Simulated scan of single mutants.
Amino acid sequence: MKLNHLPIGARFEYDGQIYTKTGPITAAAEKGGQRMIPRHAVLRPVDGHTPPPAASTTRQVDESRVLAAFDSYHNTALRLAEGLGKAELEQARARFLAALEGSQEN
């Protein structure tokens, strides 16, 4: 676990000593004194604190919901354009849908 995974006040072990996190890169030793803790340091949590789950780098979305939302947006845009720019909006829609098709091939 890294120091940035711990909230202020959390206790952890580093280099055989128990510390309490006091700032973004500082901690107070149980035996007294402050110390800067390197961001790369691997720490062992004390008191059962566990890090938050890693955020997923990919998000799954339902294709039909995305297309329905986009069509709703597109229909509103067409209505608001009132004839001006409708051809450009249709071209933009076609490019958007083509880009989605291209991303599915990867």
Results as ranks from 00 to 15, higher is better:
A69F: 03
L3E: 00
P7E: 09
S64R: 11
Y19G: 00
H5R: 07
L6H: 01
Q34Y: 09
A28W: 03
N106C: 06
A55T: 14
D15Q: 14
L80F: 00
H74L: 14
A28D: 14
A77M: 12
S103F: 02
A92K: 04
A28Q: 15
A98R: 07
A94F: 02
A92D: 08
V66W: 05
T58V: 15
L3K: 01
I25F: 14
V66E: 10
S72Q: 13
E90N: 08
A54G: 08
E101Q: 08
V46Y: 01
D47A: 03
R11W: 03
A54S: 11
I18T: 15
S56D: 11
Q91H: 08
Q104H: 08
M1L: 06
T50M: 04
K86T: 13
G33D: 03
Q91E: 13
S64V: 10
K2I: 04
A98C: 02
V66G: 02
A41V: 08
A81M: 01
P52H: 07
P7K: 12
Q34E: 15
I18H: 04
M36T: 15
A54N: 06
E63Q: 12
G33V: 04
T50D: 06
R65L: 13
A99H: 11
F70G: 00
A27E: 00
L80R: 11
E82I: 05
E13Y: 09
V42E: 15
G83Q: 07
E101H: 07
R65M: 10
Y73E: 07
G16Q: 03
A87Q: 09
P7Y: 10
G33Q: 06
V46G: 05
R79E: 11
P24H: 12
R39A: 13
E30L: 12
I37T: 06
G102M: 06
H74T: 02
L97H: 06
E13H: 11
I25L: 13
M36H: 14
A41T: 08
D47C: 01
H74D: 07
R59G: 08
H49T: 10
R44F: 10
M36K: 13
T20A: 09
S56M: 14
T26R: 07
G9E: 05
E90L: 11
R11A: 04
V61F: 12
L67H: 11
D62A: 13
G23F: 08
T57N: 15
N4C: 06
T58P: 02
D47H: 03
Q17V: 09
N4G: 04
A99V: 04
A54C: 05
T76I: 08
L97Q: 09
A10S: 15
R93T: 05
A98W: 00
E63C: 04
H74W: 09
R35V: 11
H74E: 12
A54D: 10
G33Y: 05
Q17R: 15
Y19S: 01
A27T: 01
K21G: 01
E88F: 00
F70P: 00
L3D: 00
I8F: 05
T20Q: 13
A41Q: 08
R95F: 04
E30F: 10
E13T: 08
L78W: 00
